[in-house]
Write a protein that binds this DNA or RNA. Structure first.
Lengths: 202, 202
DNA sequence: TAAGCTAACATACGATCGTTCGTAACGATA
DNA sequence: TATCGTTACGAACGATCGTATGTTAGCTTA
């Protein structure tokens, strides 16, 4: 399957619109209009709106892994790798209008009180994202980069600040918001500074 | 206007449903069904869906002021007052299923990328909420309860953690999430401990 | 009692929703 | 060249959306 497929175009568009307005208010007709296609043409690729939502989530997962998680793997384990991921997410918010992190900020909140297969997929993604943060923090503790701490607690805080950076940036058009998230995470990590704490480059 | 008015019942229901699924997916027919009324009976009180959304926001503001902001005013100025507000929001999440803070967590995120009068009202509410946090923090600095710091930065972090506590509690059914928010805020405040730092009672 | 206001109602409008169906255009295979 | 599967299409379905209109029942005020 090539990347220039029409189905890929649909998913990319659903990804953009879903990140702006959520996956529930996403509409087949809206998607068709945006792409210059007919409703049936869009619909036929998925067979149901729910399948479209689930495939969009799968698409967004691959984008997130490709653009955020994997690039950080080249950094040394522990804090540098964690810091690289945070920086990528923050610069996502400042550089461009729409970006990988924002899709998830929107969708994570959209399905907080819903139920069904889509919600379950969203929750799984959120869980694996937080778990990835926990792993990096636990590794950082093992490497004595950080003082002993509860990785789940620090991961919670990290995710909270990253989400808020993206959210406040959008809701209030406040260009300082992503930087505030970055500064807060840096401050938190330095609070936990261990013997082998690495330099956090800008 | 009595509190038992039918219009009040509608607003209360819109407040509940809006906190669960957002104000955009809120529907006149859904509201009417829930209340045992006709669509026209509900609609007549507002004249448009947008007016209903705006009135629901106004209603939610008064609830928030009554249940979160005003009770804290009885505490001493600065950190105790700030801490009381945080505690109220956190126990909101743990005690009951739905509550004042969660409406705003949902709605704040729902309108992050939208436009129009409803979004503007939401943004104003968010702004005044964060500004209230800033005032309390600035006062705490003046009273030497906290070391000198940027109140806007600390307010950003506080709001981020409170929102995340409510959000993770709902999305992941994680009863520890609100407590994590509370612990993170407490840790952050103690990092900024000044000469007159008060005891943070449990 | 008579008049007027309010709140609720039933009904209906056009638009749009997700979905289904039948079909034309196209490329690959035989 | 004939056949088949893919991909798109137009048209239409019933349901539901927000909204408009006309009307009834009950209260208030004269």
């Amino acid at each position: 399957m090539e990347s220039g497929t029409n189905k890929q175009r649909i998913l990319e568009c659903a990804y953009q619109l879903g990140g702006l307005y959520g996956l529930e208010s996403l509409t087949i007709g809206q998607l068709a209009g945006q792409l210059g296609m007919s409703k049936a043409g869009v619909y036929g690729h998925f067979g149901s709106k729910q399948a479209l939502q689930l495939e969009t989530i799968r698409y967004a997962r691959t984008v997130f892994l490709r653009d955020v998680v994997q690039p950080a793997e080249e950094e040394p384990a522990g804090v540098p790798r964690l810091w690289a991921m945070c920086n990528t997410l923050v610069s996502y918010s400042t550089d461009t209008g729409l970006h990988g992190g924002d899709f998830w900020v929107t969708v994570f909140h959209e399905y907080g009180s819903r139920s069904g297969p889509v919600r379950d997929a969203v929750e799984r993604t959120f869980g694996s994202w937080v778990r990835r943060l926990e792993e990096l923090i636990a590794t950082a503790v093992e490497l004595r980069q950080l003082e002993p701490c509860d990785p789940a607690q620090v991961a919670f805080e990290t995710q909270a600040l990253l989400n808020a950076g993206s959210h406040v940036f959008r809701l209030c058009h406040d260009p300082k918001a992503p930087g505030r998230a970055r500064a807060a995470i840096r401050q938190r990590l330095e609070t936990l500074r261990g013997q082998a704490f690495p330099v956090l480059e800008d």
